[in-house]
Design a protein around this nucleic acid. Structure first.
Length: 613
RNA sequence: GGCUUUGUAGCUCAACUGGAUAGAGCACUUGACUACGAAUCAAGAGGUUGCAAGUUCGAAUCUUGCCAAGGUCACCA
């Protein structure tokens, strides 16, 4: 039994014996003791004033005496106000450390349960950007966390490879590309396709502008504007209608989409070619980010799914049909609106597809837990989807989870493609690695290493800075991205944690072979030694909490706290030249375990540790 | 307008899910390398937790009402 469980159960027992009142051990309120007081854990005794009919101080005395008498792992206590501070024995900490040191891995064994996590899910008309990076880090990290808890994790990505967007890129390339390839243009292939998407938008904007000034455009403006509406505002809102009803290249793009749906050879071949370019580019980006998927779903294969489920739902009267033939679901009793699930012409909408793919995924992999890492702008969509699946009686309905995360804003405001303020993922990685390189060269610690090794270390440091910067923020919050801070290597950053790790490796290497079996003879642990073991002790709890809440930021701040505790321990104690052999053995073991935990924790965030830096 | 998320130091973020004097980093001031790695450590300054009530031994956290910002409410995906 762990020490916190001992305290909880002991307190429950004490309340029962001393005050004749039953409480649940899990409800015992226990915290780590604040630094300014003596002790390791504190029990809050206020809740027992009513049943004990005593003052909090007296209850603290009663409970403290009971616990210290009964359990040899608790050696001392003091009471301040309503807080009972308990001191854990050095022996217990020492033994705990020995137990962790003996473990072969910090991972939990496989227990057979499955979970599917969908993340990234890009469109194929442009390269990945900062928003994708946050998505990917959250998805990847959640996958790693669940793997660490013994789950069979399936990482999947949906590729939105069809639709009007890719047709825009295709059309622009067809019109102006002269058969050029990305290689010929010397541009990374996904960026090359993105370039043609931008070209299309330029062309469209120019066409729209001309139309606005034409007699036809002015006529539309004067007849359709709301009173007092400015011309600029009107045309901004009219853009989609213009695209669909007036635009020449708009109708050309739509015609292309129709041809695609009709399996036109020429269009399909062009589509395959350009999507191929995009995938090639994505692969490089993913590889550089250090991530991979177990399975891909292409929207072009799945966009027709779901109709049979709608039929099924109609017969079960979960959905209803309007006169025009469109199919809806009434969610008013769940405080939502009526929602369309099938168009009047019988074609699918987004929701139809998602209903179909969730079922397909369950059939493919059989996971009762399925997670969607998607930005919070789609909260409503997933709420509706999950409600529908529940009403359809899907066995996995309760295991569906939307890992909703906030958007990333820049210090200068929102990212907007129209204003060219999109932060590109490839550029970003390049910049952080550059910054790490410049810094490392200045430090000069890596001199003498082979170039390839140096490059690998720059990459690890740069990516650690970037990844940690993003993942340390609570997932659900909108975050502000400051490019200057993202390359910082000091303070609450990934490289700070890497640095602690590197120092540990350096010490272990210099110490050589040390017999740690005598570590248990070391007594009189110092405060920073205890603090560090206390951090190690928290690992399981933190991983569990991260998993339950799908929030890796807990692990990020845990790793930081751990590195900080290590730095303080390292300041207070000599390790190789310790005052005794026992102390040395103990501290070497503490260093080993700390290093393992740091590496384990950071790997859960998708961050690699260098051996030197 | 309905629903929803957020509001904490100059800035970026925490706060173990209701506990002690709200903590870190950056920036600012200062001290510590001939040292097991200074990408470090230590110290200082910086707060009416958006505002106002309520709940209780105790509220940044729960409730209500305001204020502000984002999201969403498409036969788009």
């Amino acid at each position: 039994m762990s020490i916190t469980e001992i305290i909880k159960e002991g307190t429950a027992l004490a309340v029962k014996e001393l005050y004749d009142h039953e409480i649940n051990a899990n409800d015992v309120n226990i915290n780590t003791t604040r630094k300014e007081f003596d002790g390791d854990y504190s029990v809050v005794v206020f809740p027992y004033t009513k049943v004990a009919r005593k003052k909090p101080e007296q209850i603290g005395e009663d409970l403290g005496k009971y616990l210290v008498d009964k359990y040899e792992d608790l050696t001392n206590f003091n009471v301040i106000k309503g807080f009972l501070n308990l001191e854990v024995s050095d022996k217990y900490w020492n033994q705990y450390l020995a137990d962790v040191a003996e473990k072969e891995t910090l991972k939990k064994p496989f227990h057979g349960e499955k979970i599917m996590i969908e993340f990234s899910s890009p469109n194929t008309n442009k390269p990945l950007h900062l928003g994708h990076v946050r998505n990917i880090l959250l998805g990847w990290s959640s996958s790693k966390i669940y793997e660490a808890l013994g789950y069979d994790v399936q990482k999947v990505q949906v590729i939105n490879d069809r639709g009007i967007a890719i047709c825009k890129s295709m059309l622009a390339w067809q019109m102006m590309g002269n058969g050029e390839t990305p290689q010929e243009a010397g541009i990374k292939s996904d960026h090359y396709v993105g370039k043609w998407y931008v070209e299309f938008e330029k062309l469209f904007q120019a066409e729209y502008k001309t139309w606005q000034e034409s007699a036809e455009g002015q006529a539309v403006f004067s007849t359709q504007k709301k009173d007092e509406q400015e011309e600029v505002t009107f045309f901004k809102g009219f853009k989609n209608t213009y695209f669909n009803e007036h635009s020449k290249i708009g109708s050309a793009a739509k015609a292309m989409l129709l041809k695609w749906e009709g399996n036109d050879d020429e269009v399909r071949n062009l589509w395959k070619k350009m999507n191929g370019w995009v995938y090639e580019g994505f692969d490089t980006t993913y590889k550089n980010l250090g991530i991979e998927f177990d399975n891909l779903y292409y929207e072009s294969n799945t966009y027709l799914l779901g109709k049979d489920i709608i039929d099924d739902g109609l017969s079960k009267e979960i959905f209803y049909k309007k006169e025009d033939g469109s199919v809806w679901i009434d969610l008013e009793d769940a405080k939502m609106d009526h929602k369309l699930v099938l168009r009047s012409d019988g074609t699918s909408v987004y929701m139809t597809q998602d209903i179909g793919t969730v079922e397909k995924r369950f059939q493919d992999f059989g996971a009762k837990k399925m997670v969607y890492v998607v930005a919070d702008e789609q909260n409503h969509h997933f709420k509706v989807l999950f409600e529908i699946m529940k009403r359809m009686g899907a066995s996995y309905a309760d295991g569906l989870f939307h890992l909703s995360y906030g958007m990333i804003n820049l210090t200068t405001g929102k990212m907007k493609s129209r204003e060219g303020t999109i932060v590109d993922a490839d550029d970003l990685m390049k910049e952080v690695i550059e910054a790490a390189r410049a810094n490392a060269i200045e430090k000069g610690e890596l001199e003498g290493l082979e170039e390839a090794k140096k490059e690998d270390i720059y990459r690890k440091i740069g990516l650690a800075a970037l990844k940690f910067f993003i993942i340390k923020v609570n997932a659900r919050k909108t975050m502000i991205f400051n490019p200057e801070e993202s390359v910082d290597l000091q303070g609450n950053t990934g490289p700070y944690i890497q640095y602690a790790y590197v120092r540990i490796q350096s010490i272990l290497k210099k110490a050589g072979e040390v017999d740690t079996s005598i570590a248990s003879k070391y007594t009189n642990l110092g405060p920073t030694e205890k603090e560090l073991i206390g951090q190690i002790y928290r690992l399981d709890e933190v991983v569990k909490m991260s998993a339950d809440q799908f929030d890796p930021s807990f692990i990020a701040s845990y790793c930081y706290d751990m590195a900080k505790s290590y730095s303080r321990f390292n300041r207070d104690h000599k390790i190789i030249k310790a005052e005794s052999e026992e102390a040395k053995a103990f501290r070497i073991r503490l260093c080993q375990v700390t290093g393992e935990v740091l590496e384990f924790g950071m790997n859960l965030l998708g961050i690699e540790m260098p051996e030197r830096m």
